[in-house]
Amino acid sequence: MEPTASGAQVTLKDVAAASGVSISTASRALDDRGNASGSAAAIHVRKVAEELGYRRNSFASNLRRGDTRTLGVLVPRLSDTVMALMFEALERAAAARGYFAMVATSGDDPEDERRAAETLLDRNVDGLILATARLDDELPRYFRERNVAHALVLRTDGVSPSALGDDEVGGYLAVRHLIDLGHRDIAVLTGPSFTSTGIARLAGARRALDEAAIETPAEWLVAAGYGIENGFSAGHEVLEGGIGRRPSAVFAANDNLAMGVIAAAHHLGIEVGEELALVGYNDIPLSSRLSTPLSSVRVPLDQIAGNAIDLIVNPGKEPQIRKSMPTLIPRASSGAPRHSMPQVR
């Protein structure tokens, strides 16, 4: 609240007295949680409040009601573009529903994750949204047992309320695209095996390969982290031809991995889009701005964010695990149909 000319802060009681109404009537007129009342009395109260310089203490008001209209968001790191974009989408979705979102980072360590979650809970948040869940993560189970309102986003443990893209469909779309272009020598770089995203995208890729009766060497199925450096190492591993030949195409389970593969290919003198087809995942903004624009699987982050918020603020509605459909965005990196491409050296 802002001070009056005498230095005192204007209270709700002051507004009620100046408006000639009860404190409860003034409180209802100034409650900004829903549609503002259009009654003459409410309009008069708001006009008086504005003239007096009154500002409602929404935090204290919410505490009296037992909620703070605040949600905590836990991500591994904000240096990861997808996590930063996810948080921004959650901020927008929360604001549209009258909530405020605050973020904490935890890395991939379970103990750091628990400490960060406790820090957010100490701020009296109404619920937690976790973008950190591992398949072996105990934190969602801990929340379920203690009835802590929470939702998992982008990842799922298969039990807690979750909002994510359909990663198996996404992996399928990526590899099916490469097969439809005529490729049969396809490597797949997956995410970490402790994440639902890594497992589901690999499952989708395998389904597409199985449908086409393609047997992929085990050396071309590489589990890695989700960083550019992981893509660079894994890219070298599959492109150096350790089994006597190299793949003509690569599906990388996120765009950072794909950019690492681009760097590895450049280092080995292999031209992406001509000699090597490449598809990434997530379609981060940089993907379309690369010198060879990256084909990628786009994930509807705003829809996922809205689902995650709704799982907390409107609990009990089915389904508790909500998957949004991804879309393949083909660009130059996946190249021309295989029959018109130069032969792989």
Rank of each mutant, 00 (worst) to 15 (best):
D180V: 01
A224N: 14
N307A: 13
L130V: 03
R298Y: 12
R184T: 13
R115S: 10
G260I: 05
M86C: 09
P315R: 12
G158N: 05
Q303D: 15
L257V: 12
L268S: 07
V299T: 14
A277F: 04
A218L: 03
D283A: 15
P337T: 02
G34S: 13
A36T: 10
N35R: 14
L71T: 01
G171N: 03
D31Q: 07
V45C: 01
L221V: 15
S6P: 09
V272I: 08
T70W: 00
N254Q: 03
A117I: 01
N314S: 13
V153H: 02
G306D: 14
A29L: 06
G34P: 02
V10M: 11
L164N: 06
P293W: 07
R331Y: 04
L286R: 02
R123F: 07
V75T: 07
I179Q: 05
Y281M: 02
H183S: 00
D32E: 14
A101W: 01
S6K: 15
L221C: 11
D31R: 07
A208S: 07
R146I: 06
T156H: 15
L130C: 07
N147G: 08
S334L: 02
R92G: 09
R33G: 01
A41C: 02
R176W: 00
N307V: 05
E274A: 15
D167H: 13
V125I: 04
L294D: 09
S27V: 05
M1L: 13
L52K: 12
Q303M: 09
D109V: 03
L189I: 14
E240L: 04
E271M: 14
A163G: 04
P3K: 11
S248E: 11
Q9I: 13
R134N: 08
I228K: 14
G231A: 10
A253H: 10
V125Y: 02
R155Q: 11
L85E: 14
A117S: 09
M1Y: 11
P76F: 00
V344A: 10
V159E: 12
I179D: 03
A187P: 04
G72S: 01
T4R: 15
R97G: 01
R146L: 04
L52Q: 11
E318H: 10
A131I: 05
V10D: 05
S296R: 14
S61T: 11
V297N: 08
